[in-house]
Design a protein around this nucleic acid. Structure first.
Lengths: 179, 179
DNA sequence: CAGTCAATTGACACAGTGTCAAGTGATTCA
DNA sequence: TGAATCACTTGACACTGTGTCAATTGACTG
């Protein structure tokens, strides 16, 4: 998946790479989507995204947490790009893939909610925003699709992504940040 | 395409809807992608996106133009959603679809560039930003994918999208806007 | 009346997913 | 020792959707 950037990976290719027959896969996973979904759960667990994001939320201030959050997420995406891309492609036409995708993205959303709440509590949330709407907007800013558009579409490096995305969210959500 | 939100529309379905045989379509368009690409060009022309966006750029100030731009674009997307979705889905696996998509998005990018330039000239561009990078970031904020994530994923109305997207880009790119 | 042209019909090749049935070889258990 | 079990293999096949091909039709044109 990572080698092929998530596209054009057939069941036969996966079987070959795993050194088993194509049918052997179907003995363990009902469908291609079930395999991807299980793999996504496994990968997130192994890579420990939850832990990484949790760690960030423990920062002294919500503003600091926000900056670290963008950095951690921006650097995490390349590690899962191929699988994420494949799952996202399947999402449109496959209900199970949609569910798997939404579940994967839920922890990101939770982190966004925590940060926005933190900002609000510290009186740092820009006054225009309602916390619920700000959460959804921040979550959208940090979506895989936005990451992809900037890095693939605009050919930005991850560092550049982190730098400008941080600038964007700081200006958007933080009232009078330490500039 | 609009009825089905761009998904699960087969050549046979299109033929039936057009009241011709499936093969008749292939007499006019080489591939499914060629048909979608031609349709996209036709639709943009008929709907006059270019004109709408141009009109907006004539606003008195760049800040005003930015607000109108978000409004025009946000309200335009629902008119082309299905076709855009279909073209986007084909983009991953079809080079011709990728080209068609990129061409469609170019005019949006041009508008973003004009607005950011305008802001810079008026001394209103937030000092953190470089104009080229700000253009790409604004273009990404206004991408179809972001629109979709907010309206489908977060179930925002178009009005809500316009409202909060305006808030976001004003805070992000405009230095000291008339708040 | 012949030629042309757009379209129709129906068959087919191809790719990829998922199913099915029969067979194999190693391990386990009585 | 021999039967049962288990994970896996092999090869065939159904199904869907795209794109191709050949033969045919029917209307308009000169």
């Amino acid at each position: 998946m990572e080698e092929r950037r998530g596209l054009g990976v057939r069941m036969g290719d996966i079987a070959k790479a795993a050194g088993v027959s194509r049918q052997a896969i179907y003995l363990h996973f009902d469908t291609r989507t079930a395999l991807m979904s299980a793999t996504a759960i496994y990968v997130d667990e192994v890579k420990g995204l939850d832990v990484r994001l949790q760690t960030v939320l423990a920062a002294k201030t919500a503003v600091e947490a926000l900056g670290l959050y963008v950095e951690v997420w921006g650097n995490y995406v390349p590690e899962i790009y191929g699988l994420a891309k494949a799952l996202l492609a399947a999402r449109d036409t496959d209900e199970a893939a949609a569910v798997a995708w939404d579940e994967r993205m839920a922890c990101l959303r939770d982190g966004c909610r925590a940060i926005i709440s933190g900002l609000a509590e510290e009186g740092k949330l820009a006054p225009e925003w309602d916390p619920a709407d700000a959460t959804e907007m921040l979550w959208t800013m940090l979506s895989f699709q936005t990451w992809e558009q900037l890095t693939e579409g605009c050919e930005w490096s991850v560092d550049k992504y982190v730098r400008w995305m941080t600038t964007l969210v700081m200006r958007s959500f933080v009232e009078d940040p330490a500039r």
